[in-house]
Write a protein that binds this DNA or RNA. Structure first.
Length: 563
RNA sequence: GCACCUAUAGCUCAGCAGGAUAGAGCAACGGUUUCCUAAACCGUGUGCCGGGGGUUCGACUCCCUCUAGGUGCACCA
């Protein structure tokens, strides 16, 4: 039973307005003492030629008390509904417990596939905090859609193609040290890559050599391909260590090189549709009808460019997955690039271009130069994770030295703290990285939310078996009802998070849940309450823990058993 | 030069398909532990919502303009 819908039906029986429209208008009052749902009458005022206050007043008199609504009051043009708390409480808690881990799932999405491209690091380059930010956001977006019941595919569009790899092969042949590379592949490869650039300034031959090796690569020269493949394997091995720490998996690592042999077809199609225009020796697609600058598809030397690969990749994905949505979680600096790619696809006649979505992520910046220059001018993801775990371990030693599984819990909390910081605010707002902020353990933070779960979990464990048939009507305090309302609004949070591709909606939601549960916990006894109340509060706690687990899971955070 | 984004409390940020007194956390100060983990809870204060116009019964929210900051603008990805 959907209480909002039932209320909308009541209203629609009294006024001349579409049910859909009414549902749309119904809102939740800013203060709980004003009611649980509110219907603004301002729009009706025009057609009914009466003041909103009058309309609200008249409507309120026609609403009778029943199982849904306790009473309806008019207040300043709003018709405020106070729902039947006891019925609502029963309905929500039972719903959460019945659905279990599937609570919040939408039906009807089973056959729709949502592709989410995220992370996409370049091989042989360090994985820094910026990559981690994008990875954590992309992963959470995918989990939101998965929880809503969509089929999803996690795509890691690895950067493994381009002249840079010719240069790297050249550098490897000159200065590559097997042992060092095996020990610390990415840093060692980066080192010889940097050396290549230094040497190239003195010796022009090097640049030529680099381009030559890239040509070899393109022509599938076995020697060059083998070296490139080695770089790729080593890099992926390192990346996967991080993904493991973050509990993130991918369904595909098909990167740029994978699409290189799929470019000729897209180029042929562009020619066939007369979309390619000569401009300064290059081939471009005119996008003036979308008010966009032209899109360069083929360079003046005849070579392709990353736009070409993205076009080929999009078509490939449509054929391979027949996606419902094709989501690119990529830095916001590439907004124009994606507009051009989607615009070009549209001109090619692919209507599904409208199903492609660029979801921009913010830049991670550094305010404190000292910190950013630690190891060059980046901070590695691994450093941040290690630092967080160390800090958590210290706190555990300090607060709970007898804790079991300290190492595991330190990892769950430390990594959770970082993820929380990354998913706390809107994804497009630039982040000035600070250790203090990332490793925040107080107030609205990862550990705060996990602590809320741990408290509930601990109580459930102590209770042992709980009475599944407890009478929930004894839950009649305000603190309890606030929790119930939050449980009920989980679906709204999920929906909004998906519509906006914004994990922070879930972060805020679960933080509110933690606040409400902590307050409830502090104010009322659970195990020490009288039998009937205890049973009901245990069921409430169980439902809350279930939603904690689902929400934190969507964010990519773990739920420690204790902390 | 053109395009897009951002501007809300001392700091970091929510709120913006227009609506009821603009909200959190941090920081500051004060309080809570014979009681299920105090990584918790409670209380106190703060705002020309960047400036100026306009639309509207009503604007932090929509439109125009100015200012400040950021990003992008063809042969890197």
């Amino acid at each position: 039973m959907d209480f909002k819908l039932e209320i909308a039906k009541k209203i629609s029986g009294m006024v001349d307005m579409e049910l859909e429209k009414i549902i749309d208008l119904i809102e939740i009052p800013p203060q709980s003492n004003m009611g649980d749902y509110a219907f603004p009458c301002f729009q009706l005022a025009r057609v009914m030629r009466k003041s909103p206050n009058m309309i609200a007043k008249e409507l309120s008199e026609k609403i009778d008390k029943d199982l849904i609504v306790d009473k309806a009051e008019a207040a300043g043009g709003y018709l405020n509904f106070f729902i039947n708390k006891s019925e609502y409480t029963k309905y929500i808690i039972n719903d959460v417990l019945e659905k279990g881990s599937a609570y919040g799932r939408q039906i009807g999405n089973e056959d729709k596939t949502v592709l989410v491209e995220f992370s996409s690091p370049n091989i042989a380059k360090p994985f820094h905090v910026g990559h981690m930010f994008n990875t954590v956001i992309g992963s959470s977006i995918e989990k939101v859609f998965r929880h809503l019941g969509y089929k999803t595919e996690r795509l890691n569009h690895i950067g493994d193609y381009g002249t840079q790899f010719g240069k790297l092969i050249s550098a490897y042949k000159r200065w590559g040290n097997e042992e060092a590379i095996d020990k610390d592949p990415i840093n060692e490869l980066l080192k010889i890559y940097v050396k290549f650039h230094e040497e190239a300034e003195k010796d022009e031959e090097l640049e030529k050599e680099g381009r030559m090796y890239f040509k070899h690569l393109e022509k599938n020269n076995p020697d060059s391909v083998a070296i490139w493949q080695k770089f790729k394997d080593l890099s992926l091995r390192e990346f996967k260590k991080l993904y493991n720490l973050l509990n993130i998996e991918f369904d595909s690592y098909a990167g740029e090189s994978f699409y290189s042999d799929k470019m000729p077809e897209i180029i042929d199609m562009l020619y066939a549709k007369n979309l390619l225009v000569d401009s300064e020796g290059a081939k471009i697609v005119d996008l003036s009808e979308f008010n966009l600058p032209p899109c360069l598809v083929i360079k003046s030397d005849g070579a392709t460019i990353y736009v070409t690969r993205d076009l080929a990749a999009a078509l490939y994905r449509k054929r391979a997955y027949d996606f419902y949505k094709n989501v690119y979680v990529v830095g916001g600096t590439q907004t124009l690039h994606f507009k051009q790619v989607f615009g070009t696809l549209k001109l090619m006649g692919f209507e599904w271009a409208d199903d492609c979505e660029h979801v921009g992520t913010a830049l991670i910046k550094f305010a404190d130069k000292k910190l950013s220059t630690r190891k060059g001018d980046v901070i590695f993801a691994k450093e941040v994770i290690d630092e967080a775990i160390v800090k958590t371990t210290e706190i555990i030693e300090n607060k709970n030295p007898n804790l079991k599984n300290k190492e595991l819990v330190a990892k769950q909390i430390g990594i959770g703290a970082i993820i929380y910081t990354f998913l706390k605010n809107s994804r497009e707002r630039d982040v000035v990285f600070s250790w203090e902020e990332s490793l925040s353990f107080e107030g609205e933070s990862g550990p705060y939310v996990q602590y809320g779960y741990v408290r509930g979990n601990s109580i459930l464990n102590k209770a042992g078996t709980i009475n599944e048939n407890a009478d929930l009507s004894v839950l009649n305090t305000e603190d309890e009802f606030n929790l119930v309302k939050l449980l009920g609004s989980f679906k709204d949070a999920l929906k909004e998070s998906a519509e906006r591709y914004e994990p922070f909606v879930i972060t805020r939601y679960v933080t509110d849940l933690a606040k409400a549960y902590n307050k409830f916990y502090n104010t009322h006894h659970i195990l020490n309450a009288e039998e009937k109340v205890k049973d009901a509060r245990l069921l409430l706690t169980k439902a809350v823990c279930n939603v904690f687990k689902i929400s934190l899971g969507i964010l990519g955070m773990e739920t420690p058993e204790s902390m």
